[in-house]
Amino acid sequence: MKTMVIQIRTGSMMNMDTNVAVKLARAASQKGYDVRIFAYGEGVTLIKEGQDPKRFPNVGAESKALVEAGNVEISACVTCCAARGLRRGEEIPGMKIGSLTNDLSRYVAEGDRMITIAR
């Protein structure tokens, strides 16, 4: 089965970009595709545990459910996380603080299409 790679660079609460990324990932996963999400720049807020937005969609909880379903993998850039004070152990269980070199390059090599969600 083919793999969709999503690169998200927008913060979780900045606009609906992360929501779009999660909805694409969910639809792709439900159609049987593998999905790899790489969070870069402000996008790393996606993996922060304990997100609790009032009234707005909880993209952290929604993407956690996708990871638990099995064919979605999510990694975030370690340098971008460090820059924003997001430390290992603060990520949503099942997600990973990784790197461009180890994770995104693998996602690209194993991927069939990449979609960039950023402004």
């Binding site: 660079r9 870069y40 720049g41 790197s99 461009l100 070199t101 180890n102 995104l104 390059s105 693998r106 690209v108 090599a109 950023a118």
Partner: peptide, 20 residues
């Protein structure tokens, strides 16, 4: 913006990884 720097780092990482 940090975009241009971030894009350059991404391209560099793809090459240095040996995967791409």
């Amino acid at each position: 913006f940090e975009e241009a720097f971030a894009g350059s780092r991404l391209a560099l990482a793809m090459l240095s990884s040996g995967n791409v």
